[in-house]
Design a protein around this nucleic acid. Structure first.
Lengths: 192, 192
DNA sequence: CACAGTTTTTGAATAGTGTTCATAATGATA
DNA sequence: TATCATTATGAACACTATTCAAAAACTGTG
């Protein structure tokens, strides 16, 4: 097993999935970009789906860890939420191919959405839910809104706007600017 | 040309796309469900993509019209936004298959069917944007948040929560209840 | 170095599905 | 009924994920 070959395949897959979409991307092309024969792909990954799952698991995990560390530094629930939004947008801006995958390709399969929500992705969302619950306990956020509704509300908003930004050829707005506007709305909306 | 055959194919496609996802759904199965031979599908639709586009166009247009009519009845921008959220969730609850398509396949289709001008969907989003802009003009909604950011924020939030509800086998919350919570947060967040 | 055994890689063969098209069935007209 | 036009069919074709028999590249040993 050649770790660099595996890594090359993963990176090539991110590029091709982002360019052509998961289903339209050809395994043959991914292999070519990675500099191996088609069949070699199947020595390192069970199949095309596994390639996508592996991208999700292996690229997303460090992002979640770094987000977690960043949020731990923030003292107030408000700051945590603002930081989450800002940082998520920064990551999207820095990794457009990966972002496109997470935003667009991951959704198109019910299987992924459902079988992987339980683990890595749920953990990510819970960072928002926990911050909100903390604010409720501290008496600064409104009651009557369930943390799991709030976390999805905020993530849905950020994700929608990020996806739109990533897809638009002409980036007519700064994502960091959008992040600020989102923060203003959801923070004021969260307040008691 | 047999209009009912076309209609049967559209309905069958909605069902199969919702069940298996656009790419995994087989044209042969769609034809079988519609009660025609595989090749017949290609007499009524250019190809599989065209089937998806037609679903968007033909199923969504009446929904948009009815939403537009409903919003016209509301007097204040706040009521328009609350009504949009509530009604969108009602439609999702009543048409789970169609909802799943719109929720899960929409982004993908926006991506690779970009030259097919997704005017229909933009029109839908603009209902939210216009209501927000109206509120800004009336001096009741905050400045500094662009209507096109706001409309995507709200739609993204509603869509995320709706998709989650639609996909979860065990509907652990009432979507109408979630709609109320979303309304509270985004309306307070919109206020000056 | 030579060489046998082992692991890794290859790419042509296989299998599954979107699309086409020659043919059949149906409908319309006189 | 006979003839032409329209519509429907499903087997054949093209394309791509996946497999697998054979080749190549390693590894260790005498």
């Amino acid at each position: 097993m050649d770790a660099t070959k595996r890594e090359r395949l993963l990176k090539a897959a991110i590029r091709m999935f982002a360019r052509d979409g998961f289903f339209k991307a050809k395994v043959e092309d991914i292999a070519k970009v990675a500099g191996v024969a088609t069949g070699t792909t199947y020595l390192y990954f069970k199949n095309k789906d596994d390639l996508l799952i592996s991208i999700f698991e292996e690229e997303m995990t460090p992002l979640i860890e770094s987000m977690k560390a960043e949020l731990a530094k923030q003292t107030s629930p408000q700051e945590k939420i603002v930081t989450f939004i800002k940082r998520h947008c920064q990551v999207v801006e820095k990794n457009p191919d990966l972002a496109l995958l997470l935003e667009v390709e991951l959704r198109q399969s019910n299987k992924f959405l459902h079988e992987y929500k339980g683990t890595t992705f749920k953990e990510y969302l819970d960072l928002l839910g926990d911050a909100f619950a903390e604010g409720q306990k501290a008496g600064i956020f409104r009651e009557g809104v369930h943390p799991s509704i709030f976390k999805q509300l905020v993530f849905g908003a950020v994700d929608q706007i990020s996806a739109n930004w990533t897809l638009s050829k002409t980036k007519k707005f700064k994502l960091s600017n959008a992040a600020e506007q989102i923060s203003q709305v959801v923070l004021d909306g969260a307040k008691k």
